[in-house]
Each structure stands twice: as C-alpha cells, then as structure tokens.
C-alpha cells in the first residue's frame, strides 16, 4: 500500500466515523442516564432528512444543521415521554421510533411535494484545511484537511467527557443512570435528568444524520442511515460507555467501512456482499469478545418509580 492510498484510507475512516461519533455521543448521554438509546437510528434518519430538506429549501447549511438538530430532538421527545412519563419499555419504544422515522421521512419526502419524489442534490460540504497543520505530511491531510463537521464530531468528545467526569450535573446524570433512588434521595429529579439526556442525545443523533446527508452523500434517500445508528450503539458498548472509548469504537467501524468500499478496487476474490457483512460481524465479534467485562450503567432499562 503506498502513502497516497494510506492517506486516503485514513482520511475516509475519519469522515465515515464522524456521523457515528455524533450519534454515539448522544446515545452515550442517554444510556449513562439510564435509557437505552435504540432510537438513535431513527433520530439520525430524521436529522438526515430534516437537514437535507432545510438546505434544499433555504440553501443555508446553518439552517440545515438547526433543523436536523430539532428533528432528532422531536423524535427523542417521543422516546422521553413514553419511557419516563408512561414507563414504556425502552428497547421496544426505540424500535417503534425507528419505524416511525422511516415512515415519516419517506412519507414527507413524497407527500410534501405532491406525491412526487423531488430530486435533492446538494453540494457536499467542502474540506476546510487547518492552516499550517494541514501541511504536515501524512497527519496533515488525514487529520487537518477535513470538512468542518468532522472536526466538530471529534472535538465534541472532549466537552462530553469533561461534562460527565468533572461537572456536578454530569455526576448527577451518572447517578441517575446507576441508582435513581439514591439520586432522588439527595434531591435530584431522575425523570427530568433522563428526559434532558434523551433530548440532548436526540439532538446529537440528528446532527449525525445531517453529517451523513449534507457532508457525505449530498442527498436524502429512504432509510439512508441503514443501520448506522445501531453501529453507533455497538460502538458505545465496545467503548464501555466512555466517550473516548466510543470514539475508538467509531473509528474502528469507520476503518472497516472505509476498507469495505475500497477492497473492490483491489481485485480481491471476495464478493461485495461478504465485504458488506464485515462491519456487522466485527461488531458482533467485538461485543462477544468484551462480553462479560462490559458493565452497563446500573439502572439502564429500569423505569424510575417514585415511592
């Protein structure tokens, strides 16, 4: 493998990992507060749709990002209400929201334009090289010649990690995820913390969807997230519910996916379908590998009941 190929591969790894990063960090917040984030797939899809539609209508990327954030939050609100107020099963509510999102985005795409699917073709966001740093050999093009949202995705890990580890609110959030009764006893309302975590998680996942539709693909198609939300979920577990761990997980899946799309060109005797299976099998193998050692947040999946 020559240097150019390697550079290109590593750079693609980061680009593919960026939407996963947003979704994984969002899901991580929700899960650390005690709510499974199965719905991030649907929230990503909603964000991808909202973002693409807003840019299509207004031409403004900022508007696209704002709408994608709101779209993710709107679905998150459904999850938050159902799982806290109504104590609905978290896993299955997540699945329901995913189906809802698939249907709504596909319906609105046609319904809003009189039954005809509009051709949404948006210019993908350009690379934004960091002055000086982008001239470093190998590292420069890989790390510092990326579109803005790629930097944002990775930089977001730092405030999320600091928030969870160093702030009082972060401590409260973790307490609610581990032992909501104890958190309640010291004056925290676990329901409110969970709702807030789910909503912020939805906003992140929505942004992740926008990264996909605005930056990587430049359009919206039905069900375009195609399991990326679930891969982000796997990354959270592989990273043991730690923001930097999740980042490592996302980078790994990004690398596998980057390899996947290039392996065809190398003329290896493997069919594209088998190659497409690889990320899922790698996720499964990794999860099976860490298996018992992964400790979930203690109260995840358990609705808080005020006695």
């Amino acid at each position: 493998m020559d240097l150019a190929t390697l550079t290109e591969l590593l750079s693609a790894t980061l680009r593919i990992a960026a939407p996963l990063m947003f979704a994984a960090l969002g899901g991580l917040l929700s899960e650390r507060a005690g709510t499974f984030a199965v719905g991030i797939e649907g929230m990503m899809l909603a964000g991808a749709f909202g973002g693409a539609l807003a840019v299509f209508a207004t031409g403004s990327t900022a508007a696209g990002l704002a709408v994608s954030l709101l779209a993710g939050m709107a679905l998150a609100l459904v999850v938050a209400l159902a799982t806290t107020r109504f104590r609905a099963d978290q896993m299955v509510t997540g699945l329901a929201v995913n189906i809802l999102s698939l249907g709504l985005t596909s319906f609105l795409l046609r319904g809003l334009f009189g039954g005809r699917t509009p051709v949404i073709r948006l210019p993908t966001l350009p690379a934004w090289p960091v002055p000086l740093l982008s001239d470093i050999p190998l590292l420069g093009p890989v790390l510092f010649r990326q579109p803005l949202l790629v930097y944002a995705a990775f930089l977001l890990t730092i405030p999320v990690a600091l928030f969870l580890a160093k702030t009082r609110t972060g401590l409260m959030l973790r307490a609610v995820g581990e032992n909501p009764e104890a958190a309640f006893a010291v004056g925290t309302d676990p329901q409110r913390v969970r709702v807030a975590a789910i909503l912020v998680g939805g906003a992140f996942a929505g942004l992740g969807g926008a990264v996909l539709s605005l930056q990587e693909v430049g359009t919206f198609t039905d069900g375009m997230t195609n399991g990326r939300g679930f891969i982000a979920l796997a990354a959270i577990i592989v990273g043991r519910w730690n923001p930097f761990g999740a980042m490592a997980g996302c980078l790994l899946f990004g690398a596998v996916a980057a390899l996947e799309s290039r392996i065809q060109g190398w003329g290896l005797p493997v069919s594209s379908y088998v190659v497409q299976m690889v990320p899922y099998l790698v996720a499964l193998a990794l999860l099976a590998g860490i298996g018992r050692s992964a400790r979930m947040p203690g109260a995840i999946g358990v609705p808080f009941v005020r006695h």
Binding site: L102, L104, F107, G114
Partner: peptide
Amino acid sequence: VGVPSSLVYVIEGLMMVFVLCAVGLNAR
C-alpha cells in the same frame, strides 16, 4: 390516490408507541 404507502410505517410506529404507553400506564 397517490398517498405514499410508507404511511403504513407511520401508522405502525405510532401504534407501537401508543400501545407501549398504554401497557406501561397499566402496569403503573
């Protein structure tokens, strides 16, 4: 009528959410 059939997924997803809420409420 030209109403996209993906509406079924919307109905299905909403139905699931409502049923789940009802079940949770009932258990409560």
